[in-house]
Design a protein around this nucleic acid. Structure first.
Lengths: 129, 129
DNA sequence: GTGCATGCAAACGCTTTGCAACATG
DNA sequence: CATGTTGCAAAGCGTTTGCATGCAC
């Protein structure tokens, strides 16, 4: 993988992310880094997190208008299960979840492509009433 | 149900929401209403949507930093499946999805409470690498 | 007159971008 | 010297809130 940008501070962000339990916001990550004496800027944290997410080294989710990030083991094909109630997150191997999540989570047309391409997919289930 | 607020324009928002296919943003909904000659303000659209979502008359999801809304059949206990690839959304009856989604989507501790309370839950599955 | 919905504009929080300064090779 | 990262500050965007107005009862 060719280094695109954020070569110095990006490592600091990656470390801080790895040190954190569960998902953290960019701002809280920035706060932590500043507390440890780093002069890192908020913009750099955002840029680093965007890169990490692109490379698959970090996983992100949206919650209440802000993005939360979490280090995840890169290179391995896996999914996350996030408990909506308590926030507990588990990485699980791909095959297990695809067995139950992929077919009902995609419409017929896309499920076809999913099985072929196995591209990024997200299944969401909301409960009402 | 006692009318809390937004009694007049709320109905206009509800109608416009029902007229829309799939999920729409508050801003686009506001634009549509203004195009039809309504003097409704953006704030009122947001307030009405918040109420509709609270009452279960609308379903909302977050996508790329903005909230999208969709009318849904109120009073019935149901879930939504949203295809991450093409955005197709289907309402499905509760029992079917709870069979496969609830147990793996919650951690052990919360799943217990889920079965007891059957409170609002959301299961997300993200795919990486 | 009282209460509450409404529209407007300002404020808010998170994120992104413009830019000048600087480190690296 | 050329390239690309950095911090800061300002801008951007969706959303929320404060407030004066006006309608309904």
């Amino acid at each position: 993988v060719v280094a695109k940008r954020n070569t110095w501070q990006r490592e600091a962000v990656r470390e801080a992310l790895g040190r954190s339990e569960g998902f953290v916001s960019a701002q809280s990550l920035h706060g932590q880094l500043r507390e440890t004496g780093s002069p890192i800027g908020l913009a750099t944290v955002y840029r680093a997190l965007a890169d990490l997410a692109t490379d698959g080294a970090a996983d992100s989710l949206q919650q209440e208008g802000e993005s939360l990030y979490r280090a995840c083991t890169p290179g391995t094909h896996h999914h996350h299960l996030i408990c909506r109630t308590c926030g507990t997150t588990v990485e699980i191997e791909a095959d297990a979840v695809e067995t139950w999540a992929a077919p009902p989570g995609l419409c017929a047309r896309c499920a076809l492509g999913f099985r072929r391409r196995r591209g990024p997919q997200l299944t969401r289930v909301g409960r009402v009433a």
